[in-house]
């Protein structure tokens, strides 16, 4: 009985969606061309995805799988035309095999191409050891490039404002209070994360202040997350009301 009612809700919703689109096209609110059908498709997929909020259903599953497939296909095409073709195929493969090519092959590209191909050999039991060369290259290069830059940008540059004088002239009272709060926050949170000392007495009190700072920070992050998720909903409803139904200008 429950399954039957869900089936009728699904069929009824699809029927209603089709009727609404017919009315929109007949009343010329939606153009009878590829743009109009594109808007209908986007509206249908938006509603199908949001239908999950009521219950999991076949329309949601179709939209979800379609999203995965389309985004993967799109990524492959963009990667080919933006990267593989201009940076590898055209300068290396074309000059080797085409007599009409005007430039000589860039043989230096063979080494990175081989390293990239070795990554894919992880799927082969016999040849997967070759992928270690690529990983060794990536890890070695990555660590070498990253370590000095990360220390400079994340630690040294971040310490500077923490060591800013509370009052060196020119600051307002509020900015001095901000500097004091930052100092208190940094010290108390750092003390909270010292686990080799028991959190009792003065250490315990300061680490409790650290917990408060952490909680406020988590609350701010959560507030921003709510705002972000809501923005996505607002954007989709704006699309449905403006582009699809033509209610908003």
């Amino acid at each position: 009985m429950r399954r039957d009612s869900n089936f009728f809700i699904l069929v009824g919703s699809i029927g209603l969606f089709v009727c609404v689109n017919i009315v929109l096209m007949v009343s010329k609110k939606l153009p009878f061309n590829s743009q109009g059908f594109g808007i209908i498709l986007a509206a249908g997929l938006t509603l199908a995805i949001y239908s999950f909020l009521y219950q999991d259903n076949p329309a949601f599953k179709i939209a979800e799988n379609l999203y995965v497939g389309v985004s993967l296909g799109y990524t492959i095409i963009i990667t080919w035309f933006n990267f593989l073709k201009p940076d590898l195929y055209d300068p290396l493969i074309v000059p080797i095999f085409s007599r009409a090519a005007t430039q000589s092959p860039q043989y230096g590209l063979i080494i990175p191409s081989l390293l990239g191909t070795f990554m894919l050999l992880r799927f082969s039991r016999k040849l997967s050891w070759l992928s270690r060369w690529t990983f060794a290259f990536v890890v070695g290069l990555g660590a070498g490039v990253s370590i000095p830059r990360v220390i400079s940008a994340y630690i040294l540059e971040q310490i500077k404002p923490s060591l800013h004088p509370v009052f060196s002239g020119g600051e307002t009272v509020l900015s001095s209070i901000n500097t004091l709060l930052i100092m208190l926050g940094v010290i108390s949170v750092l003390i909270y994360f010292i686990f080799s000392v028991e959190h009792k007495g003065a250490i315990g009190k300061v680490s409790k202040i650290g917990i408060w700072f952490l909680m406020i920070s988590f609350g701010a992050s959560f507030g921003y997350t709510v705002m972000g998720r809501l923005s996505l909903l607002i954007g989709r409803i704006q699309f449905l009301l403006r582009d699809w139904l033509g209610i908003l200008q």
Binding site: A153, E157, Q158, K160, P161, I182, S217, A220, S221, Y224, T225, M227, G228, S231
Partner: peptide, 17 residues
């Protein structure tokens, strides 16, 4: 940036990065 990563970016404003 998106609102979700917004709070993580404030330290870079403070340091003028």
């Amino acid at each position: 940036c998106t609102a979700v990563i917004g709070p993580d970016m404030y330290p870079f404003l403070q340091s003028k990065q």
